[in-house]
Nucleic acid binder design. Sequence first.
DNA 1: CTGAAAGCGCTTACAG
DNA 2: CTGAAAGCGCTTACAG
Lengths: 346, 346
Amino acid sequence: MTDTAPRRRARGQRPPTIIDVAEHAGVSRGTVSRVLQGGHNVSPAARDAVNAAIRKLGYVVNRAARSLVTQRAGCVAFLLSETQDRLFGDPNFTTLLTGCTTALGEHDIPLILITAGTEAERRRVTPFLSTHHVDGVLLISSHRGNPMIDHLRQANLPFVCCGKPLGERGALSYVSSDDHEGARTMVRYLLESGRKRVATITGPLDTPGGLERLQGYRGMLAEHGIAYDERLVAHGDYTRASGDAGMQQLLTAAPDLDAVFVASDLMADGALAAIERAGLRVPDDIAVGGFDDSPVATAVHPPLTTIRQPWTRISEMMVRQLLAQIHGEGPATVILPTELVVRESA
Amino acid sequence: MTDTAPRRRARGQRPPTIIDVAEHAGVSRGTVSRVLQGGHNVSPAARDAVNAAIRKLGYVVNRAARSLVTQRAGCVAFLLSETQDRLFGDPNFTTLLTGCTTALGEHDIPLILITAGTEAERRRVTPFLSTHHVDGVLLISSHRGNPMIDHLRQANLPFVCCGKPLGERGALSYVSSDDHEGARTMVRYLLESGRKRVATITGPLDTPGGLERLQGYRGMLAEHGIAYDERLVAHGDYTRASGDAGMQQLLTAAPDLDAVFVASDLMADGALAAIERAGLRVPDDIAVGGFDDSPVATAVHPPLTTIRQPWTRISEMMVRQLLAQIHGEGPATVILPTELVVRESA
DNA sequence: CTGAAAGCGCTTACAG
DNA sequence: CTGAAAGCGCTTACAG
């Protein structure tokens, strides 16, 4: 912080303090503070006088002073522990981030954005977090074995993950859409539309979305008495290119496939391209089902039939869970239902 | 902040304070503080002792306490004053945001993300900003007449805009890529490749990118002695759909066009779709030039020849300018060069 | 170069 | 229900 050294504000333009409010309302600072805290143990008359003074003077609490005495930061971190490239193409990220900002804003809690995709960044971030510069953390990461989880636990800092953290033991809060059921819904839809050979392109298997959507696919096939066929399964990494490559592989290994469930819309876009190059039509020859209902779903031709993830609700629940933990509640898992969105690709 | 009330930390797990460091190093608190501020007026022996104690104890400054006495927040806001939808599809946004976070991180300055796309949000945000809860603002908005600019000026808060704010008078800091020259470069490239009838699809004309890229297009045509032809100009809003519609309009109004300069890659993707539906080939029949070099540029077929915007440098310069202003420097304008990236579409 | 001390703006037991 | 007062952890003139 040597970087923000000089020039304290001139006396004249200093915002009003609690003392100004107290004088104006004819009460003590303690009473003003009590009104600020919710007005318990304050007479209606005093409360009204204080509120009037606050409005009159345009008083806004000085968070640094409050923070110093309460030993709480009064703000929350949005901690991005993915490398940047993973996010660049991901429109869900923006939705999640602005959703969390808005949900926190309603509680008047500022959000601090922190990136920790590299080891160097993590070294810088850890002391900041463990010295309680934030009251809690919204943790964004999808891959197995995120070292930040241990750091946060050691610092005894409340946190809630976006999506189920893989390979963690012990209680831990996360909010996730129902990947498993979402996948089942899509595969059921494809089968009930009369498709016989349903393939899939998965996400990375060290992510919950990769793993659980594949399990949902397998489970629904089994329920329909269809044996699992490895030739019908390709693995992607959520990029468009990997969807393209995966589809190419599937078309070679199983030329008789008539449907494909792709674990993300972006990969589905790639799959569409591969299908088109192969001279096949969607949905006539091959039905394509995506996952996410991200903006690409409606940008491609034909528009994707897909599974909608409730990102706004996810952000809201993450914030709610985090605040509950900050207030002393224990961790909890929240699973939110997804929704089938039928368009033209299947 | 009634929301983060209870449970102050137990005495035992409190982080070490400057007093602990002072005792450990055998000096006064004042001396520790001076070392923290850069070590001026401190003997080498004392400095070493303090630094050793800091390392030993894992001391990290309490920012709330510092902030209270220095009257500075020690953090900076990233203020998003666009409605959400504008951002959802925009991959540049993520680059800019993480770029700013990283650049600030190198100065140990946290970034607070604030959204103010609606009037209701602005009402909540303004008191927060004008009571100096941040030392400065990175202002993201592209449309003419952003009310936040007036609020920031009234609050006397340093700020730097991303892109040139249209219709503002008076000195004001902004960082922008050279839209005008970028457009000129693309149009020159198309003309020098032998194209004769170069059309354009613009961005919204109340944004600097919409306006200046169109001016660059007109200017370069004029330099080649080509008269401006309204039938060769369509207006979009940076969405993929508007690029598609714009291209359709151009193909009707000027069926003889053999190139099109599209003011964003996303719109260029839409244009590609319209061209394909018309049964024409890219680049054989029509050369397509984009703008941004965003991830879509390489995701589409054929990959786009485009103008690269230096988003990482833009974020770095925004941060640098903002810190300079916080330190008392006056406003400045920074224009960064763009780069022609030749791929297959032109 | 260094220490002692005031003070930043709040909250919160403690008395009453 | 209310006021007086201690104290949160720092920085910064002020003396020396």
